[in-house]
Design a protein around this nucleic acid. Structure first.
Length: 254
DNA sequence: TAAATTTGACCTGC
DNA sequence: GCAGGTCAAATTTA
């Protein structure tokens, strides 16, 4: 681990501790007014720190510190789609990437699946999505989704770039479900966007019946459920030596 | 019939 | 040479 990475881990750890203090301070207020928004917020913060630490401690974390390359076919190279060959393109580096581990694939944006790949030593394929509005608005947002193999029904999601399309999110994990539910009485439409991702795009074994239960099965206590899931994932990554000497308590709230 | 998904081939980085 | 990322034709869906 180089110095910058170490500093980043320390910074994230500090932020995590601050979030923990915030949780403690606000927990009474949450109980008083019955609102779950604070808990959800803390869960989100925890989730962000967890994801960052996960990335930093993953074997491939060095990729995230690479300098982004310029656009495909940069320089004076002109795409010359010779007969029988595809156009020139550069393999994407991790430009402006962020990672999430989530139990839902839905983020309110419209995504179009453009590829799926079997990954070595992985039971589940990795699916590749780009923004539906790439054509119309040149939106360069990309997303990779892969199901975790620990049986927790969680998904490892990596976003690349940002949405530049005028399309606004129709839902989010911070309260967007109501909007979605209003717009859809059936399981096909998680939002009113042209196309959103269903879980069976990633794991064909997940049927529509299962999807219809996604919203209703939302955890009543997000922080607790999230911690349980983190622990499961931690055990999984620990078994794969992805965490080195970092303990579970170093990553999530106790 | 347009849009979305599937899937095999192509391409790049390691 | 291999694994992973992307393309694009074929197929499916609404």
């Amino acid at each position: 681990m180089d110095i910058n990475k170490k500093e980043l881990v320390e910074t994230l750890t500090k932020g995590r501790d601050s979030a923990k203090k915030l949780q403690n301070l606000l927990s009474q207020k949450v109980d008083d007014d019955g609102s779950a928004s604070v808990g959800d917020l803390v869960t989100e913060i925890s989730q962000s720190f967890y994801g960052s630490l996960l990335v930093l401690n993953s074997p491939n974390s060095s990729e995230f510190s690479r300098v982004p390359v310029s656009s495909p076919c940069s320089g004076d190279q002109i795409p010359t789609p010779a007969k029988g060959r595809r156009g020139c393109y550069k393999r994407r580096k991790t430009i402006d990437s962020r990672m999430e581990v989530s139990d839902t694939i839905e983020d309110g944006y419209a995504w179009r699946k453009y590829g799926q790949k079997e990954i070595l030593n992985s039971n589940f394929p990795r699916c590749y999505f780009r923004c539906t509005h790439k054509q119309g608005h040149g939106c360069k947002a990309l997303k990779q989704v892969q199901k975790l193999e620990d049986g927790s029904n969680m998904f490892h999601i990596i976003y690349f770039g940002h949405h530049t399309c005028p399309h606004t999110p129709t839902s989010s994990k911070l309260g967007g479900f109501d909007l979605d539910c209003k717009n859809s009485n059936n399981h096909h439409n998680m939002s009113n966007s042209p196309s959103t991702i269903a879980k069976d795009h990633i794991d064909p074994s997940i049927k529509q019946e299962d999807q219809s239960n996604n919203v209703s099965s939302a955890p009543s206590s997000p922080s607790l459920v999230w911690k349980e899931r983190l622990q499961d994932e931690f055990e999984y990554f620990k078994n794969n030596d992805s965490f080195g000497d970092i303990s579970f308590d170093d990553i999530v709230f106790s």
